[in-house]
Design a protein around this nucleic acid. Sequence first.
DNA 1: AACGATTGCGGGAACGGTTGCGAAAAAATA
DNA 2: TATTTTTTCGCAACCGTTCCCGCAATCGTT
Lengths: 343, 343
Amino acid sequence: MKYVTIKDIAAALGISKSTVSRALNGDVKNVSKETLQKIVDTAASMGYRRNELAVNLRAKSNHVIGILVPEITTPFAMSFIASVQKIVSAKGYRVSIAFSNESPETERMNLEMFINSRVDGILISTCHNTANLSTYEDILQRKIPLVFFDRTIAELPVSSVRSNDYIKSFFMVEHLIMSGKRKILHIAGPNHIQNTIERTRGYRDALAKFRIPFNPELVVQCGVGVEDGSAAIEQAFQKGLDFDAVFCFTETQAFGAKRCLQEHGFAIPADVAICCMSGTILSTLVYPQITAVEQQVEEMGEVATSLLLDKINDFSAPEQTIILNAKMVIRNSTVENPPAENA
Amino acid sequence: MKYVTIKDIAAALGISKSTVSRALNGDVKNVSKETLQKIVDTAASMGYRRNELAVNLRAKSNHVIGILVPEITTPFAMSFIASVQKIVSAKGYRVSIAFSNESPETERMNLEMFINSRVDGILISTCHNTANLSTYEDILQRKIPLVFFDRTIAELPVSSVRSNDYIKSFFMVEHLIMSGKRKILHIAGPNHIQNTIERTRGYRDALAKFRIPFNPELVVQCGVGVEDGSAAIEQAFQKGLDFDAVFCFTETQAFGAKRCLQEHGFAIPADVAICCMSGTILSTLVYPQITAVEQQVEEMGEVATSLLLDKINDFSAPEQTIILNAKMVIRNSTVENPPAENA
DNA sequence: AACGATTGCGGGAACGGTTGCGAAAAAATA
DNA sequence: TATTTTTTCGCAACCGTTCCCGCAATCGTT
C-alpha cells in the first residue's frame, strides 16, 4: 500500500478515525494521554503521511503562494523568490512559481492556473505589455489577495511595492556629472513601461540641474539583454557619437556595454564611466565592479510577502503602495577610488 | 460567493452535478449537445473555476513535480528549473520548488513536504553532506518517482543525470598546458563530494600526461562562492606560490579569482590564464570572457524530466544513469584569439 | 443519593469533484 | 406494435481529512 490513511490506523487500533485525527493534531483536551500516545506510535510505525490534498480541500486553502515573474533566470527574480520562500515556508506555505516570458497570454494562463489550484495569494511582477486587466479584476472579485511588485499597475486598487526609480536615477546621473563626466549616453529600456519613463526622467532632470543641454541622440532605446547593451555601444560608435559615460537602464545592458567598450580598448572609468539601475550581486563579479542602484530585493520580498499575508489574514486590510529606497553603490566603474560602501 | 461549484451550476439549471461534471469534461458520449452547451455557457457566465484540489484528491495525484536544489540563486538551478517547467507545464503539471541550503535537515524537511503534498515525482540535486538515505528509501518504497541530477548518489537504485566531469576536467587542464601554462593552480571544491574528486582527478591525470610533477601546494580546497575564489588567490600570494594559470571548480570561484588577479594588476590571460568547470552564461558577461566547461543545463532538464515522466507513467521503467557531454568553450581568459565556438 | 459537569470517544456530514451503474426516455429494429 | 438498442441523465459511493454533535462513563458537589 502506497499511503496509509487515518482510517487504516483507526482500523488497526479498533478506534474511530475521528479520534485518530484528533490525536494526530495534538488535541489533548479530547483524547486521553494513553490513546494519543498509542495513535502517534502506530502512525509512526505504519509510516503515516498526512494527505495535504484532503486537508486543503476541507480547509479550502492550498497553503500555497503563487509567484508570477516575467523571467525566472534573472538574479532579481531568484533573490525575490528565495526571499519570499524563506518567510512563508516558516508559516507553513509553499510557493508555486510561474513565469510569463513577457507574454500577456502566458501570464493570463498562469494566473488562471493559480486560481484553479486555489492559491492563497499571488505575488506578481507583470510582463511588459500587460493586457490582463480583466484577469486581475477577476482575481480581485474572488477576493484572492494580490500584491504587485517591481512592475506595478497604477489603475488597480491593489497593494504594490517598488523602488524610487526617479530619484535614484537622478542621483546616479548627478554622480556621473560630479565625477567630471558631461557627455552621458543613456541606454534606456522599452518605451512602454513605467520604469523606463521614470528613469529617463531622472536622467533628464539631473542634466537640467547642471545646465547640460539634453541631446536626444544620446538616448538609445533597446532591449534589456546583454547583447542589446553591447549592440547599443557599437551603434553609438557607428553614429560617431561622442560620450564619456554610459548610464544603463539595467545591469545586463551595462555588462554588454562594458564588455564592448573594453574590447574596443577603452579604460573604465578613465575613458568611459559606466553605471546602471537594477544592479545585483552580479555587478561585483566583473572587473571593474559596476556602480549601480541596487533594488533591495530581499526587502522587497519581505515587504511584498508581509502585505500579502496581511491580506490573506484579513482581506479588508488596506491597500498600500510602498516605495522602497533603492541603494546606490559606487564602485570602480565610475570612480577610481570609491568609498567603502555607501547608500 | 468566492467560488461557484458544479453543484451551484447544477442547481441553477435544475440538473444533477454528475451531468455538469461530464459536460465540463467534454464527455460528448454521455451528454446531449444542447445540455452540454447550456452547461458550458452558464459555467462561463457564472465564472466557474474547476477546483483542482478536489480533482487531485479524487485522482490521488497532485499534478505537481517537486524540484529540490541546494541553492536557488544560481544560474544553473534557475535554468534547470526553467527547462523542466517548460516541458511539464505543457503536460499539465506544475512544479514546486524547494531548496536545501546545503543542509541535510532542510532537505529532509522539504522532501517530507513533497511526500505530504503527494507530488507525482521528485527531481533532486542533493546537498553536499547528504545524510538522507533513509528518506530517499522511504520515497522509493512509496513508489514515488525520483530522479537525481547533477549531484547524484551512487548507492541508490534510481535514475540519474550528470556530466562527464572527469574527462572534461582533463581536457580543460590539457588545454591550459597546450597554451603554454605549466604552473596551474587548482581551486578545488569541498572534499566530500563526488564532483570534487572527479575534477581533481582530471587535473592530476592531465598533468601526468605531460609529465608535469604534481605539486600538492597548488591545490587549494575551499567553498564555491565568489569570495572563496578571491580569498584563495590572496592566500596563494601570501604563501608565495608561483602560478601562471588557475583552474577552478566552479564559475563563481573563477569570478572571484579573476577579479582579485585583475585588482593586483595581472593581465589575463598573458600573466595568468583562468578557466573553470560549471560555467554558465555568466562567463560571457565578464571581461575577458571566461573559458569554461558548461553543463548542458537545458538538456539536463530535458533528460531528467523525461526519465521522471517515464517513471510516473510506469514505475517499473528501468533505472538509467545518463552522462551528458558537457561542452568546453574556449574564450579570452585562456587564449588571446579563441576559435569562434567550440565543443 | 441525585444531579450537573467534564472527559473520551464514535458517528456522520461535509469539502468539490469523478465515475460505475442503473433507469428512463428516445430511437432503431424486427 | 413489441422488442432491442442507444442516448441521456441521476444516484450514490468515493478520495482523506476535519469537525460538529451526541452519548456514555467518570467525577465532583451538595
